[in-house]
């Protein structure tokens, strides 16, 4: 979390993906996930500069469906908050 905080300070235009409003697009600027979670995100193609669009919240607000490289992927806020993006 501390690392995240540092990154926010350095790049205040970056936001966690979980903050991206639905219908908006963004580009991945940093992937803070660790371990297995990081591997999963990479497998989904969430590497630097990847375009992501927040499509739809689930009925209770979490998880959220994102459009990543043509596929619709639902992520929980935990995972999405480790992905720093720059809104487009």
């Amino acid at each position: 979390m501390k690392q995240n905080a540092d990154l926010y300070m350095k790049h205040d235009q970056f936001i966690p993906l979980s903050f991206l409003p639905t219908g908006k697009k963004a580009r991945v600027r940093a992937l803070m996930s660790k371990g297995i979670s990081r591997r999963r995100m990479l497998d989904l193609g969430l590497i630097l500069d990847t375009e992501v669009e927040a499509l739809q919240k689930s009925p209770f607000g979490d998880p959220v469906a994102y459009l990543v490289r043509g596929a619709v992927i639902a992520l929980r806020s935990e995972e999405a908050s480790d992905i720093l993006v720059e809104a487009m």
């Binding site: 996930s33 989904l44 639902a74």
Partner: peptide
Amino acid sequence: PSSFTLELPP
């Protein structure tokens, strides 16, 4: 809970 990803296929 460990990481969660779920694909919503067409």
